[in-house]
Deep mutational scan, measured.
Amino acid sequence: DESNKPILLPNESQSFERSVQLLDQIPSYDTHKIAVLYVGEGQSNSELAILSNEHGSYRYTEFLTGLGRLIELKDCQPDKVYLGGLDVCGEDGQFTYCWHDDIMQAVFHIATLMPTKDVDKHRCDKKRHLGNDFVSIVYNDSGEDFKLGTIKGQFNFVHVIVTPLDYECNLVSLQCRKDMEGLVDTSVAKIVSDRNLPFVARQMALHANMASQVHHSRSNPTDIYPSKWIARLRHIKRLRQRICEEAAYSNPSLPLVHPPSHSKAPAQTPAEPTPGYEVGQRKRLISSVEDFTE
């Protein structure tokens, strides 16, 4: 099969070098950035008060330690540790928490760990991170309901609301924008112990962030949302095809390698009803078989 044979790379090609550099910018793992907010007593309706908090309760602090690993920003190499735009020179604080497994990295933009500057009256330095995160974990210690939209931002799609209760338990629920209701189930609340709260809140936030990324990708319907490693695979396959075309153009005697095509017509299947918005969006999480067989 010609399409699977190794090909020689061009010795000097600026377009090839640019493509390789672009490939280096696509990590081999999925990345997520999640905002974390603490809401104190009497702050449920005040964005400024929430963003001005420099610490929270003892249970909130224990919750943070379970979310991930504490890292010092100045020691991080952005090409190895995903920071979601946090500055490593102290502009966004000294520490944050991050978490990773074999296929993804997540960083938490924690408002109480970011510096509260006197010259920044409206807390814009914090909002440029927190307001651009799709998902926020809100530790609501106010005793009042927290409403979506209290923290203004164009991309605040989903809130994971943590409400501490007695007996070391917590109520965990989801809020989302109306255009996200087909992807996020907000109907079920959970009672979770303090011990298990970081794991549950983190998983709910990661799932909500993946759904938000799919939702946000609708602005470019021709580019369905893939995982990062599938995006790398697609980029490599496009690069291979372009090299083959350039080689055939410079030397017409060489065969032009095309991806294999299936001449056999697909079997006719009964027509199915058109899937609704929710089903269609969830299918976009699934990769096409052509990603692996071309």
Results as ranks from 00 to 15, higher is better:
residue 1 D to A: 07
residue 2 E to T: 08
residue 2 E to W: 09
residue 5 K to Q: 14
residue 5 K to R: 10
residue 5 K to N: 14
residue 5 K to V: 15
residue 7 I to Y: 10
residue 8 L to Y: 12
residue 9 L to C: 15
residue 9 L to D: 12
residue 12 E to N: 07
residue 13 S to P: 08
residue 13 S to F: 08
residue 14 Q to Y: 12
residue 16 F to E: 07
residue 16 F to P: 06
residue 18 R to A: 11
residue 18 R to D: 14
residue 20 V to S: 07
residue 21 Q to I: 04
residue 23 L to A: 08
residue 23 L to T: 06
residue 25 Q to L: 06
residue 26 I to P: 07
residue 26 I to G: 05
residue 26 I to W: 05
residue 26 I to V: 09
residue 27 P to W: 05
residue 28 S to E: 15
residue 28 S to M: 06
residue 30 D to H: 05
residue 31 T to Y: 11
residue 32 H to R: 01
residue 32 H to P: 03
residue 33 K to I: 05
residue 33 K to A: 13
residue 33 K to T: 13
residue 34 I to M: 02
residue 35 A to R: 04
residue 36 V to M: 01
residue 36 V to C: 02
residue 36 V to Q: 00
residue 40 G to E: 01
residue 41 E to P: 11
residue 41 E to A: 06
residue 42 G to D: 03
residue 43 Q to K: 02
residue 47 E to Y: 04
residue 47 E to P: 04
residue 48 L to Y: 13
residue 48 L to E: 13
residue 49 A to K: 10
residue 49 A to R: 04
residue 49 A to S: 06
residue 49 A to N: 04
residue 50 I to T: 03
residue 50 I to K: 02
residue 51 L to D: 02
residue 52 S to Q: 11
residue 52 S to D: 06
residue 52 S to G: 08
residue 54 E to W: 03
residue 56 G to A: 02
residue 56 G to N: 01
residue 59 R to G: 00
residue 60 Y to R: 00
residue 61 T to R: 15
residue 62 E to L: 04
residue 63 F to K: 00
residue 64 L to A: 02
residue 64 L to R: 01
residue 65 T to K: 09
residue 67 L to A: 00
residue 67 L to Y: 00
residue 68 G to Q: 05
residue 69 R to H: 12
residue 70 L to F: 05
residue 70 L to Y: 04
residue 70 L to G: 06
residue 71 I to V: 10
residue 74 K to A: 09
residue 74 K to W: 04
residue 75 D to Q: 13
residue 77 Q to R: 12
residue 77 Q to N: 15
residue 78 P to H: 04
residue 78 P to F: 12
residue 78 P to Y: 11
residue 79 D to N: 06
residue 80 K to S: 07
residue 81 V to C: 11
residue 83 L to H: 14
residue 86 L to R: 15
residue 89 C to F: 10
residue 94 Q to V: 09
residue 95 F to T: 04
residue 95 F to H: 07
residue 95 F to L: 03
residue 96 T to P: 03
residue 97 Y to H: 04
residue 97 Y to K: 04
residue 98 C to K: 07
residue 104 M to S: 13
residue 105 Q to C: 11
residue 106 A to S: 04
residue 107 V to T: 04
residue 107 V to F: 14
residue 107 V to N: 06
residue 108 F to A: 01
residue 108 F to L: 01
residue 108 F to V: 01
residue 109 H to R: 03
residue 109 H to W: 03
residue 111 A to G: 05
residue 111 A to W: 03
residue 112 T to W: 01
residue 112 T to K: 02
residue 112 T to D: 02
residue 113 L to S: 05
residue 113 L to Q: 05
residue 113 L to R: 05
residue 113 L to P: 03
residue 114 M to A: 05
residue 114 M to W: 03
residue 115 P to R: 06
residue 115 P to T: 07
residue 116 T to H: 08
residue 116 T to V: 08
residue 116 T to P: 05
residue 117 K to Q: 08
residue 117 K to S: 13
residue 120 D to E: 11
residue 120 D to Y: 09
residue 120 D to F: 12
residue 121 K to G: 15
residue 123 R to H: 15
residue 124 C to V: 11
residue 126 K to T: 04
residue 126 K to G: 04
residue 126 K to M: 05
residue 127 K to Y: 08
residue 127 K to S: 12
residue 131 G to F: 15
residue 131 G to C: 15
residue 131 G to R: 15
residue 132 N to P: 04
residue 133 D to F: 11
residue 133 D to V: 08
residue 135 V to A: 02
residue 137 I to A: 00
residue 139 Y to P: 00
residue 140 N to Y: 00
residue 141 D to E: 06
residue 141 D to G: 01
residue 143 G to K: 07
residue 144 E to I: 03
residue 144 E to M: 08
residue 144 E to G: 04
residue 144 E to L: 05
residue 145 D to C: 04
residue 145 D to V: 06
residue 145 D to T: 08
residue 146 F to P: 01
residue 146 F to L: 05
residue 147 K to Q: 11
residue 148 L to P: 15
residue 149 G to W: 03
residue 149 G to K: 05
residue 149 G to D: 13
residue 149 G to Q: 10
residue 151 I to N: 02
residue 151 I to R: 02
residue 152 K to N: 14
residue 154 Q to H: 12
residue 154 Q to K: 15
residue 155 F to C: 15
residue 155 F to E: 08
residue 156 N to F: 03
residue 157 F to K: 12
residue 158 V to L: 02
residue 161 I to V: 14
residue 161 I to T: 04
residue 161 I to G: 01
residue 161 I to L: 07
residue 163 T to L: 02
residue 164 P to I: 00
residue 165 L to V: 02
residue 166 D to E: 11
residue 167 Y to C: 05
residue 167 Y to M: 06
residue 171 L to T: 03
residue 171 L to W: 03
residue 172 V to T: 01
residue 172 V to A: 00
residue 173 S to W: 04
residue 173 S to N: 06
residue 175 Q to V: 07
residue 175 Q to T: 09
residue 175 Q to S: 06
residue 178 K to G: 09
residue 179 D to G: 07
residue 180 M to I: 14
residue 181 E to W: 04
residue 187 S to R: 09
residue 187 S to M: 04
residue 188 V to A: 10
residue 188 V to I: 09
residue 188 V to N: 09
residue 189 A to N: 06
residue 189 A to T: 14
residue 191 I to S: 02
residue 191 I to A: 02
residue 192 V to M: 01
residue 192 V to G: 00
residue 193 S to I: 01
residue 193 S to L: 01
residue 194 D to V: 00
residue 195 R to F: 05
residue 195 R to N: 07
residue 195 R to H: 09
residue 196 N to T: 05
residue 196 N to G: 04
residue 198 P to V: 01
residue 198 P to R: 00
residue 198 P to N: 00
residue 200 V to D: 01
residue 201 A to K: 00
residue 202 R to C: 07
residue 202 R to T: 09
residue 202 R to Q: 03
residue 202 R to G: 08
residue 204 M to T: 05
residue 205 A to C: 01
residue 205 A to M: 00
residue 209 N to L: 03
residue 210 M to V: 06
residue 211 A to L: 07
residue 212 S to I: 08
residue 213 Q to I: 11
residue 213 Q to G: 04
residue 213 Q to A: 09
residue 214 V to T: 03
residue 215 H to G: 03
residue 216 H to C: 06
residue 216 H to K: 04
residue 217 S to A: 13
residue 218 R to K: 10
residue 218 R to T: 14
residue 219 S to Y: 10
residue 220 N to V: 09
residue 221 P to G: 05
residue 222 T to Y: 06
residue 229 W to E: 14
residue 230 I to S: 09
residue 230 I to C: 14
residue 231 A to V: 06
residue 233 L to R: 09
residue 234 R to D: 14
residue 234 R to I: 03
residue 234 R to S: 11
residue 237 K to S: 07
residue 238 R to H: 15
residue 238 R to T: 13
residue 238 R to A: 14
residue 238 R to D: 15
residue 239 L to K: 04
residue 242 R to G: 10
residue 243 I to C: 07
residue 244 C to F: 11
residue 246 E to G: 14
residue 247 A to R: 06
residue 250 S to Y: 08
residue 252 P to W: 15
residue 254 L to A: 12
residue 255 P to C: 08
residue 256 L to C: 15
residue 258 H to I: 09
residue 259 P to L: 13
residue 259 P to V: 09
residue 260 P to T: 14
residue 260 P to D: 15
residue 260 P to H: 13
residue 260 P to I: 13
residue 261 S to G: 12
residue 262 H to W: 11
residue 262 H to I: 13
residue 263 S to P: 11
residue 263 S to T: 08
residue 267 A to G: 12
residue 268 Q to F: 08
residue 270 P to G: 11
residue 271 A to R: 09
residue 275 P to V: 08
residue 275 P to I: 09
residue 276 G to R: 07
residue 277 Y to S: 14
residue 278 E to M: 07
residue 280 G to A: 09
residue 280 G to D: 12
residue 281 Q to P: 13
residue 281 Q to C: 09
residue 282 R to Q: 12
residue 283 K to M: 11
residue 283 K to C: 10
residue 283 K to D: 13
residue 283 K to I: 06
residue 283 K to P: 11
residue 283 K to Y: 08
residue 284 R to P: 13
residue 286 I to N: 14
residue 288 S to L: 09
residue 288 S to E: 13
residue 288 S to H: 09
residue 292 F to Q: 15
residue 292 F to R: 14
residue 293 T to K: 09
residue 293 T to N: 13
residue 293 T to H: 09
